[in-house]
Amino acid sequence: MSHRLATMIGLCAILLWASIVGLLRQVTEGFGPILGVCLIYSLSSIVLLILFKPPKLHLFHKTYLIWGSILFVSYELCLSLSLAFAQNSQQAVEVSILNYLWPSLTVLLLILTKEQKFHPWVIVGVLLTLLGIIQVQVGNGEFSIRQLTRNFATNPISYVLAFLGAFIWAAYCTVTKKIGNGQNAIALFFCLTAVALWLKYLWIGDFVIPEVEWHSYLYLVFSAAAFGLGYAAWNIGILHGNIQLLTAASYFTPIISSLIAMQLLSIELTWSFWQGAALVTGGSFLCWWSTRVRA
């Protein structure tokens, strides 16, 4: 496979992942928040097992399997349920921006664990990311603690899950870098996530199957494909393509994701939102760039 083709395939992975917010929201609106997420991760697990084959557990570091599983499953639960429990599509997109705090947090954790060297621009990047998140949450109103609190109080479970998810994913990335040895256990982790979601669904005991229109099934298939094919395309990209270009492009996912969600969910996003999304993207990119320059 040519270097250019592999890079293009890797860029397709970013587009697939960016579509997940909008697709997941469409599925959960049709099937309900818990059942919809259960179906997405179950079907995605099947796709990943077909693409990557069942992992040989004896080849993996036991510590990585334990901590990787716990962190990955926890993150996926936080991310998917934060979007599923959003009160409307507009709020789902706003909540998703909180998730993109993870790149800056990952850099900070890598510095704290001495995997990366500190650079002053990292602080600037983190502050830009936080400012962007605040801008998205405040909207067109003037900034105030009361305004932030009021926005949070409308749906605290979604915001807490999204915020917690960003910290968990940063921890997962740090653990993977330190003890993952470059091995791919994504199929196993997705299967464990699906099992955890079904256990939660059974525990709740709400077994009423809603009347679902045909397009919800279509979105379900697209969601599973976006997860599975996204990981497959990314693997090809980082193995055979331009990894620096792909890494840099991945930091623009918040903007791409919001654009796709706006079309899928038929919503209008304000200029204030785009300013906040741009600040989050710029802050994350600056954190990555500053550590890359220092290296």
Rank of each mutant, 00 (worst) to 15 (best):
T149Y: 15
T106D: 03
V93K: 10
S158D: 11
S74N: 00
L79F: 13
I134F: 11
F85V: 05
T154G: 10
I145W: 11
T174F: 10
L128A: 02
I179A: 05
N99I: 07
F118D: 11
S96Y: 07
G141N: 13
T129S: 13
K117V: 02
Y75K: 01
R146E: 15
A162S: 11
V160R: 10
W121E: 08
L131E: 04
I97P: 03
L79T: 05
Q135H: 11
W102A: 09
F163T: 14
C78H: 03
G68D: 01
T113D: 09
C78N: 08
A86H: 03
I157V: 15
A92S: 09
W169C: 07
T176K: 14
S74Y: 00
L112D: 03
V124M: 09
L164V: 14
L101R: 02
T106P: 01
A185H: 04
F163H: 14
L109K: 05
L105Y: 00
C173S: 15
T176V: 10
Q135N: 12
L164N: 08
T174E: 11
L110K: 04
G132Q: 02
Y159T: 12
V126D: 07
I111G: 05
F167S: 12
Y75A: 04
I97M: 09
Y172P: 00
L81V: 09
H119P: 08
I111D: 02
I145T: 08
R146Y: 13
F163Y: 14
T113Y: 06
V95E: 05
L108C: 11
G139C: 04
A170Q: 03
L79V: 12
A162M: 12
A84Q: 09
I157L: 15
V138S: 09
P156G: 13
I97A: 07
K200V: 13
L127S: 15
L71E: 00
F118W: 13
A153I: 04
